[in-house]
Write a protein that binds this DNA or RNA. Structure first.
Length: 423
RNA sequence: GGAGAGUUGGCAGAGUGGUCGAAUGCGGUAGUCUUGAAAACUAUUGAGGGUCAUACCUCCAGGGGUUCGAAUCCCUUACUCUCCGCCA
């Protein structure tokens, strides 16, 4: 959520920044300012009324104490009118605040200066490309065929047990998956991240904290009985660790990592592009999350990019990095880089990681602050990224490492899998 | 699931109707002392709104109520703890 004083002071910049998302913020921004003016005026009126009745109450108390009950009773009669006016101002103020809140929820984060304008994924900038795309043998197949051929992922069985989008991994498929999780976590820990095991169900407040609510209500699985949501990403429980937290400056930066399954309803997305492992209702992901001093958050961002690069290099997968344009950058993010692995047999790029700096947008909702060197409480910056999303890495390995003899296991993973080929 | 107890500032923990935004301790900050540090001592230290700055207002888990006046009484929701039941 953007801060109102920031919007007031940087009105033109906010509108221009959001234009890069093809988001016309002009009316919203105007409304925010008008409502905020109204809010202030009402607050002042309410405060004055309350001050008056506070003074009166004090006087009544004093009169009683000094035995002047008759005078006190006389004063009491005057309080009812004050009560009514303060109630009216209070109600008015509340509706005003509610409206303001709603407006603020509608404003996405202002993109960083370096973010290109653009409408959709076609306007994203490729800023990095590494690894050669392997020449596959004549009979090379997409991963869903390979999965069947080597009996490592059973989509039909998942359909039977749960439904589409819930694959069953078995044998070496399951073991490879587990190896990847362990490898990613070890890499993250070696880079200074602390491992967490987090709840997979979260409450409403946490969903508001990271912005899944109110915007993305229908995209999460919801247990109505207990009013809990299945997490769509570890970002939700991981970042909400810091909801309503005041850190000391010396405690920054905070770096955490965690493996969790992720659950997404993905309502309405079917078809060829979601075949196999491309899009699932349940998938595994290892996430990295950082809380940073505002002065260092972009340095941390670069560090996260390098870190993910390092993992993909070790896996020897061909990948590229995209700087997302304004239109494709997620609602709460100021800047996002996507990592994509080339899926040889499908002849397309698959997103496997997304690293974002939210600056203070999430922190403002979360009330995540730190005491700065001047002794003032200041909003921290939050960042997160995947390292990595499992199914598409798996798809990338299956497709890029397939040979006539079977699927080779990237060397770095062999100590984790305990086998070097799936055949 | 049943019964009971609790939720107070960065943390711990007093406070049961009127100078309580809240004792005390820890922690933080500044200073004295010290070559420097530690210890000790002294001072200072909750958050938000509002103002040029004051004034002033709000906040003692969330919401509602009683009262001239609520951290304190009542209702309600959430959470925590203890006991019983159930259970990997």
């Amino acid at each position: 959520m953007l801060q109102v004083p920031f919007i007031r002071d940087n009105k033109a910049a906010v509108i221009a920044g959001l234009a890069k998302r093809h988001f016309d913020a002009k009316d919203l921004v105007e409304q925010v300012i008008v409502l905020d003016d109204e809010r202030r005026a009402l607050q002042t009126k309410l405060d004055n009324t309350l001050a008056e009745s506070n003074a009166m109450s004090k006087e009544i108390g004093n009169l009683y104490k000094s035995g002047k009950a008759a005078q006190a009773n006389q004063l009491k009669e005057k309080t009812s009118a004050l009560k009514e006016t303060s109630k009216a101002f209070g109600d008015h103020l509340n509706t005003c605040l509610e409206k303001l809140q709603n407006l603020l929820y509608q404003l996405p984060n202002v993109p960083h200066d370096s973010v290109p304008a653009g409408k959709s994924e076609e306007d994203n900038e490729e800023i990095f490309n590494e690894g050669s795309i392997p020449e596959l043998y004549a009979g090379a197949e997409p991963h869903w065929e390979l999965a069947k051929k080597y009996d490592i992922i059973d989509f039909e069985l998942g359909n039977k047990i749960a439904g589409a989008g819930f694959p069953v991994y078995k044998g070496k498929g399951a073991r490879l998956q587990r190896a990847l999780i362990a490898y990613f976590l070890d890499k993250n820990i070696a880079a200074g991240y602390t491992e967490y095991q987090l709840p997979l169900l979260v409450n409403e407040a946490s969903c508001y904290g990271t912005g899944q609510l109110p915007d993305k209500e229908g995209q999460m699985y919801h247990d109505a009985q207990d009013n809990l949501y299945l997490i769509p990403t570890a970002e939700v429980p991981g970042t909400n660790i810091f909801r309503d937290v005041l850190l000391n400056e010396a405690e920054l930066p905070v770096s955490i990592t965690g493996y969790t399954p992720c659950f997404r309803r993905e309502a309405g997305s079917y078809g060829a592009h979601v075949r196999g492992l491309n899009r699932l209702h349940q998938f595994d992901k290892v996430e990295i999350i950082r809380v940073e001093h505002p002065d260092h958050s972009y340095k941390a961002f670069d560090g996260m990019i390098e870190h993910v690069k390092g993992i993909l290099r070790e896996l020897k997968l061909p990948f590229r990095i995209l700087r997302l344009c304004g239109g494709d950058t997620g609602f709460p993010a100021a800047m996002t880089y996507d990592f994509e692995v080339f899926s040889t047999a499908q002849d397309r790029w698959l997103e496997i990681s997304s690293v974002s700096n939210f600056e203070t947008y999430q922190a403002n909702r979360l009330k995540l602050r730190f005491k700065n060197s001047a002794g003032k409480n200041e909003l921290a910056h939050t960042l997160n990224g995947s390292s990595l999303a499992l199914p598409r890495v798996l798809a990338g390995i299956l497709e890029n490492y397939q040979t006539e003899k079977g699927i080779e296991i990237p060397e770095i993973l062999v100590p984790y899998t305990g086998f070097s080929i799936i055949d």
